Amino acid sequence: MRIPGTLVRGGTSKCWLFGHEHVPPTLDGIERLLVDAYGATDPVHLDGIGGATPTTSKAAVVRPCAEAGIDVEYLFGQVGIGVGRVEWGSNCGNCATAIALWAVTRGLVPITGDLTRVVLRNTNTGDVLEAAVDTTGGVVHEFGTQTVPGTRSGGVAVALTFLDPAGRSTGSLLPTGSTVDDLPVGVGGETVRVSMLDAGAPVVLIDAAAAGRTGVEPLAALRADAGWLRAVRHAAAPRMGLLRPGQAPDDAVPKAGLVGAPVPYVSTTGDHIAATDYDISVRMLSMNDPHPAIGLTSAVAIATANLLEGSVVRTVSTATADPPLSQPSQLRIGTPAGVVQVTCTDIDASGPHRVTVRRAARILCEAEILVPEPALPTPA
């Protein structure tokens, strides 16, 4: 089968995008298609289009939305690496950035001057996002100069805003009812000081200092700690209502990571980052590997946690946590790739109603992907 697809860089991820009309109508059919197209059972994705890393093995199926106020909706999939399955339990902000540019390029959303607004809904989680795509001069741009931490390559500027992000997956900003918990992990009696919240995505954020870490671990050290971080994730999942009784945990949600006080470090692109350049150190796990920067859904959760008295983020953050409600709250997150700034606005007692991160996107190629016939369901 020949399946049309578009490879787009969004922020620090690469995502294959598929029009809904070109894929099977069922979730099982789409999963079989992606597993074969990506070569998912191969840990290096050699015989497929997958990137063999969590940030480059992503996919989305996109369709126009007839509902008033929503332009496009998309199903996001995190395609397995060395396993023949796709995780459907989460959203991806970097891929949403890519989809916004793709939608304007495809004419799904008409250009409206120098900035074109695209409203997207993620069907996995119900997240609603608003993207402002740079269309300076009233045209779509193939290249741009906007950069993001994690790459020195420019792209088309896209400001991505998560609308009312709290509780989209679990129904509550604080699924356990607490801002901070001592979470039992494993069978050895270890407890870990964490904040578990649902904003942008469900996350479990670990107090790095209390766990004997720093929050500025190099990627190699974080990779060595991946098994422990997965254990924390799996312990948090049932506490957050993300698992049904008897269901095995997966590695999509909750997102798991370390947070610590800002200290000097050198980014993966060689930049020297001073402690005064940012407000909170963060090291996140993406599936089973260290995230080279930070997922946008995780950034939303961390910025929201900074507004919560007693959270493991608020406790060590140097950002102003109590701005007047009429003023934006800004948080500078120190990631392995550099500093990512997140802005919360329209804040009230329920949390921020708008959380914005500035990103960049670029369409890399249009392709016709050759997929073996057995990947598609047999017609009835």
Rank of each mutant, 00 (worst) to 15 (best):
M1I: 04
R2T: 12
G5M: 04
V8P: 06
V8G: 04
R9N: 06
G10W: 00
G10K: 00
G11N: 06
T12R: 03
L17R: 03
H20L: 00
D36E: 15
G39A: 08
A40T: 12
P43R: 15
P43Y: 09
D47C: 11
G48E: 09
V61R: 01
P64N: 02
A66Q: 13
A66P: 08
A68D: 15
I70S: 11
D71L: 02
D71R: 04
G77L: 10
I81L: 06
G82Y: 13
V83W: 13
V83K: 13
W88D: 00
G89C: 14
S90L: 12
C92F: 00
N94E: 06
N94Y: 03
I99Q: 07
A100H: 03
L101Y: 01
V104Y: 03
V104A: 08
G107I: 01
L108K: 01
T112K: 08
T112A: 15
L115N: 02
V119I: 09
L120M: 15
L120R: 08
N122A: 09
V128S: 06
A132E: 05
V133F: 08
G138H: 08
G138E: 07
V140H: 03
E142V: 08
T147F: 04
G154C: 07
G155A: 02
V158H: 04
A159V: 13
T170S: 07
L173R: 09
G177F: 13
D181E: 12
V185R: 05
G186V: 14
V187S: 14
V192T: 10
V194Y: 07
S195D: 04
V203H: 02
V203L: 07
V203D: 00
V204P: 09
I206R: 01
A208V: 12
A209Q: 13
G212W: 15
G212V: 11
R213W: 12
T214L: 14
P218L: 09
L222F: 03
R223G: 14
L229D: 06
R230P: 03
A231V: 11
R233F: 03
A237I: 09
M240G: 05
M240W: 04
L242C: 10
P249I: 10
D251W: 10
P254K: 10
L258I: 08
G260K: 14
P262L: 02
V263K: 15
V266R: 14
S267K: 01
T268A: 08
T269F: 07
H272T: 15
D277V: 06
Y278W: 12
R283K: 05
R283F: 07
M287A: 13
D289C: 14
H291S: 04
P292V: 07
I294P: 09
I294G: 09
G295T: 10
T297M: 08
T297E: 09
S298V: 13
I302K: 04
A303G: 09
A303W: 12
T304L: 10
T304P: 11
N306C: 12
S311T: 12
S317T: 15
A319I: 12
A321K: 04
A321L: 14
P323W: 05
I333K: 11
G334I: 13
P336A: 09
V342A: 10
I347D: 01
G351Y: 02
V355D: 02
I363A: 03
L364A: 02
L364E: 04
E366V: 02
P372E: 03
P372T: 00
E373V: 12
